[in-house]
């Protein structure tokens, strides 16, 4: 497997941390060196959050800079646009179509931009867009939106699908395993159709 740089971006509280842990676990199961960089503390409270997962033969820096990500997994459209410069020119943007207004939009001092995904596509970026929230509700809860998106990402890596399933079984509490596996599958199948 070649080196893999993944950025997981979203809004604090959307479950980006669990997604990064699952991906980190999957990469480790593949026997590669791995580093995961997380955000804790204040930024987690509804702010823009970003987590980096890097896999390869030997990883030095735990973070990803502009133009270095093979995949950006965006849990929200505005966050996809915010972090887009971090994508490699031939990278893939996997994005949940959900829109969450940031506080400056709620208070009316800023506007949520329109046509975000089309604008990104117009830059020649490979965009895989899906309503992961709806898929999560189908799997049983809005809380598994993160795992739906992880499933979608599994379509775009060299890691075998069953490795992701093993990572879910090893990481998620027992009583939620089935729901998360269902979410993973829904995301995986949806991305295949994209």
């Amino acid at each position: 497997m070649k080196d893999l740089n993944v950025m997981i971006v979203g809004v604090g509280g959307q479950g980006t941390l669990l997604a990064s842990r699952l991906l980190g676990c999957a990469v480790m199961l593949e026997g590669m060196d791995v580093k995961v960089s997380e955000v804790h503390g204040m930024s987690q409270r509804g702010g823009s959050v970003v987590t980096y997962v890097k896999a390869g033969k030997q990883i030095s820096s735990p973070i990803i800079n502009k133009g270095e990500a093979d995949i950006i997994l965006a849990f929200e459209q505005l966050e996809a646009a915010r972090w887009l410069p971090y994508l490699k020119r031939d990278g893939v943007l996997i994005v949940n179509t959900q829109q969450i207004d940031p506080m400056p939009v709620i208070t009316g001092v800023a506007k949520y931009p329109t046509g975000v995904l089309q604008t990104i596509r117009d830059c020649g970026v490979n965009v895989v867009a899906m309503d992961a929230l709806a898929a999560a509700m189908q799997a049983g809860s809005s809380k598994v939106t993160n795992v739906v998106l992880l499933g979608a990402m599994a379509q775009h890596t060299d890691i075998a699908y069953d490795i992701f399933e093993t990572a879910v079984r090893q990481t998620v509490p027992q009583k939620f395993v089935d729901m998360n596996l269902a979410a993973l599958r829904l995301g995986y199948d949806a991305a295949k159709a994209c």
Binding site: G47, L78, V105, P113, T119
Partner: peptide, 8 residues
């Protein structure tokens, strides 16, 4: 795009 900040 003009991307608004998303403070915590």
């Amino acid at each position: 795009l003009d991307i608004p900040a998303r403070p915590p």
